[in-house]
């Protein structure tokens, strides 16, 4: 019995640990804080181990990132309710007016630009994106997931992934071009 459990844990370690950096990176960009990200990842790994029996093989990275993502959202609901309140779960970002209003609230891109050099500027712009756009962009550009994988992680249709990604890039570009033409 104990041996079986040890084997299961070893199998879990082999599935999950290769994606530990990806898990941390996602948590880090969602929470925007290194300490909070570590907490989220630790909690997510516990959940993942618990749910591992239900993992039927296949894409271990998407599976783990979905758990990290949900853990991060739960964590923010508990610790930063204001931030999560602005989040639109099924929203595609098609309502231009809404985006204009929430896009850089609390962290103005101008401020991010002034605060920062070139790399810091891009970091700041990503951090200023609303959650639903930020997670798409990070999963695509930094974790190099396909649309299908991103859809699986976030739990929305592929079409929604496409429009959120387009919006995320549009918002990024706006801040970025501002800097270039300065």
């Amino acid at each position: 019995m104990e041996l079986g459990q040890a084997t299961e844990t070893a199998r879990f370690a082999e599935t999950a640990l290769p994606h530990l950096d990806a898990a941390y990176n996602l948590a880090r960009w969602l929470t925007r804080d290194p300490g909070d990200a570590a907490d989220v990842v630790q909690e997510a790994m516990l959940r993942a181990l618990k749910f591992f029996g239900g993992f039927r093989g296949g894409n271990g990275k998407s599976w783990l990132l979905a758990i990290v993502r949900n853990t991060a959202f739960d964590w923010m609901k508990a610790n930063r309710p204001a931030e999560i309140a602005r989040f639109v779960p099924g929203g595609t970002g098609e309502d231009e007016h809404d985006i204009e209003n929430i896009a850089f609230e609390g962290d103005d891109p101008e401020a991010a630009l002034i605060r920062a050099g070139d790399r810091r500027q891009l970091d700041g712009l990503i951090e200023a994106l609303p959650l639903e756009f930020r997670e798409c962009l990070v999963l695509r550009e930094l974790e190099e997931l396909s649309y299908k994988e991103i859809a699986a992680v976030i739990g929305v249709p592929i079409g929604t992934v496409m429009s959120r990604l387009a919006r995320a890039r549009q918002l990024m570009q706006r801040g970025w071009l501002k800097e270039e033409t300065r």
Partner: peptide, 20 residues
């Protein structure tokens, strides 16, 4: 530019050690 300059944060060694 994002891929080149924006960091992909690696899990801190302490976190990895604790999990292992």
């Amino acid at each position: 530019a994002i891929r080149e300059r924006v960091p992909r944060y690696a899990a801190p060694a302490e976190l990895r050690d604790a999990l292992l």
